[in-house]
Design a protein around this nucleic acid. Structure first.
Length: 588
RNA sequence: UGGGGAGUCGCCAAGUUGGUUAAGGCACUGGGUUUUGAUCCCAGCAUCCGAAGGUUCGAGUCCUUCCUCCUCAGCCA
């Protein structure tokens, strides 16, 4: 082999580099897997883990997944797929007040739709943090027994004050030195419901003077009488995320625990918990490691979970699957496709730099896969009549339109031509602007898949609006016949026979926000909502579109990609949503 | 003013232990093909890596100082 530089693989990023290095050094070789999550003894009785690495996608079921989650899903599932590993879908359900089965269902739907499955020949990899509550409780007692945790009787407010500030150390709680026995019995009383919500809290005993505020004796268990969607009323104490998460990862033998940047400060605590539990023999090396990457920011889009909930609950949009929303459910209804999200995540990469991705990148990704995948159809969105004056009144003629210009194997369909057609209002200009090459008085244009026609004039209403355009066709120019292109024209317009057209509703969607960074500074993001984010219009479709089924996707030639709405389409009466326009070098 | 991060072309983003012409994608600009002003093809597009010093034969990569941005003070995740 020569000493050439090896080419950088496409999609290389710092996390893949870490995984490759770990694999090369055999860091995780000694891991055991017992077939299900569990503690050190559980896995010790298992087999060497057939999965080279384990990652996880750990959503809290308190909302719908959005485009930012798609980035994380492709990262985690993609890593597992590419390196002979497995990715767990794990519901991080440690706060019963915010979580629900509805959200669990929407999340599983979304993950499946994006193309991933936790059902494998080796078993199911869907887990719930709440199924580990028993172990977590045991881990908490272990911490107490080893002097690493104590029950604090301070109020939340007292705790806040004694935590100190960013620049001043905190003060020890007066309850910090309770004996192990006292802590243990108090903690058991907490579990047994003998204390009021919020009256006591279990805290890790680390260092109230730490420069890292997250290490100033963080809370690990709180009393909260709430019904849990999975464990019901079994518990009245629940673990905090910072305590629970590393444990969830360890029980599942996760190797690479990937999260977003805001958890970076939490990593020392993540390692601290795991270290203490390993010392106690509850967990075994090698322990999971946490890595952080920059979350997705998209221009013109709101990806804050809290604000998304607000938009839905305050009816600024129509539900979680409103096609203007960046939820996966919304984008799906808009006509976005999983392959487009895959392309998108590959294209934007993964790094630790805060960045804003231009929304057009996502749109381009959708165009790219939709162009390849979608059959073409004709739709006139802003119809005016075109009358071919020299065409026989009652004649109907078949024209043949290819279903996909790049895929002749997809065949052709018949579109009927008659004397009176619908054409786009914008395809005729009485006084053409510079460079315009569609229909103009005296001008010639081809009726796509039909004849070349010569404009002869137009009719207008009293306000001067064009109502009907007149033309004459050139009989020897029919598409597909010999010599049809003897007359060269630059313009090419689409049309639908008035007698055959199917009238339908189309929703033209635009961005939900009119500014690149909604709510930037201290402004209210609600003021940045685009009042024209949706326009409902009545259109004329070619006859074959009448039978479109919900979620059928097409390219409406010269317009863009459209999808039959999954909620409002009826048999024989489809409603279409515009997914994204075609690129247009003429306008815009 | 504490801790933890990040700064490479308009937007992303590769850049192993310093090694000689700074990947790639998107956008953009030219040109070609085209019965979608679409697609596709071809070409161009950072003497420069937040700034200033320094070490070195050689620095985006090492050292020093500085600047900017993000993030942390929930019994949320």
């Amino acid at each position: 082999m020569s000493a050439e530089k090896t080419p950088i693989p496409l999609g290389s990023n710092f996390i893949r580099a870490i995984v490759e290095k770990d694999l090369e050094q055999g860091v995780y070789k000694s891991r055991q897997w017992a077939g299900s999550p569990g503690d050190a003894t559980h896995h010790a009785a298992g087999q060497p883990d057939p999965a080279k690495i384990r990652t996880r996608f750990p959503p809290e079921p308190n909302g719908y997944l959005h485009i930012g989650h798609a980035k994380s899903i492709f990262l985690n599932f993609g890593l597992a797929r590419d390196y002979g590993g497995v990715c767990h879908l794990r519901f991080d359900d440690t706060n019963p007040e915010k979580e629900s089965q509805e959200y669990v269902d929407s999340i599983t739907d979304t993950v499946k739709w994006l193309g991933f499955d936790w059902q494998t020949p080796a078993g199911s990899y869907m887990f719930f943090a709440s199924n580990y509550f028993d172990f977590m409780y045991r881990a908490a007692e272990s911490l107490i027994e080893h002097g690493h945790a104590y029950v604090d009787s301070q109020t939340a407010e007292e705790m806040r004050v004694s935590r100190g500030t960013l620049t001043e150390a905190g003060k020890n709680s007066p309850w910090r030195d309770r004996t192990v026995a006292e802590n243990l019995s108090l903690f058991r009383e907490m579990r047994d419901g003998q204390h009021a919500d919020g009256s006591l809290v279990l805290r890790a005993k680390i260092d109230m003077a730490s420069a890292n505020i997250n290490l100033r004796d963080p809370a690990v268990y709180r009393i909260k009488r709430a019904h849990h969607h999975n464990t019901g009323d079994t518990w009245c104490i629940y673990p905090m995320y910072t305590f629970a998460h590393p444990i969830e990862d360890a029980l599942e033998q996760i190797t690479h625990s990937i999260c977003t940047l805001e958890f970076e400060d939490q990593r020392p605590f993540y390692d601290w918990i795991l270290g203490r539990l390993a010392e106690a023999g509850l967990l075994a090396d090698p322990l999971p490691k946490q890595y952080e990457f920059a979350r997705l920011n998209l221009t013109y889009v709101m990806l804050s979970k809290r604000k998304l909930i607000e938009l839905v609950e305050n009816k600024h949009v129509n539900g979680w699957d409103d096609p203007r929303l960046p939820t996966i459910a919304g984008t799906r209804r808009r006509g976005y496709v999983a392959a487009g999200f895959k392309l998108f995540t590959d294209r934007i990469g993964v790094s630790k730099a805060d960045s804003w991705i231009e929304y057009t990148i996502l749109e381009d990704c959708m165009r790219e896969v939709l162009n390849e995948a979608s059959e073409r159809r004709i739709a006139v969105l802003d119809p005016i009549k075109l009358v071919i004056d020299n065409y026989a009144d009652n004649q109907t003629e078949d024209c043949f339109a290819p279903n996909h210009p790049l895929k002749p194997e997809l065949g052709k369909r018949v579109v009927p031509l008659t004397k009176t057609l619908w054409i786009e209002r914008e395809d005729f200009m009485e006084v053409p602007s510079k460079g315009y090459f569609r229909l103009t008085p005296e001008g010639m244009v081809r009726l796509r898949y039909g004849y070349v026609v010569k404009c002869t004039g137009c009719e207008k209403d009293t306000e001067g609006n064009v109502t009907v355009v007149h033309c004459e066709y050139l009989p020897d120019t029919k598409s597909g016949t010999p010599g049809s292109d003897s007359v060269k024209v630059k313009g090419n317009i689409h049309w639908v026979s008035v007698a055959h057209a199917c009238a339908a509703e189309v929703r033209l969607y635009d961005r939900l926000f009119k500014v690149a960074h909604p709510g930037a500074g201290d402004t209210d993001y609600l003021n940045d909502i685009n009042p024209e984010s949706v326009k409902v219009i009545s259109v004329q479709l070619e006859p074959s579109l009448k039978d479109a089924k919900p979620e059928d996707k097409f390219q409406f030639e010269r317009h863009g990609y459209f999808v039959a709405d999954s909620r409002d389409s009826r048999s024989g009466q489809p409603v279409f949503n515009r997914t994204v326009t075609l690129r247009d070098a003429w306008q815009k």
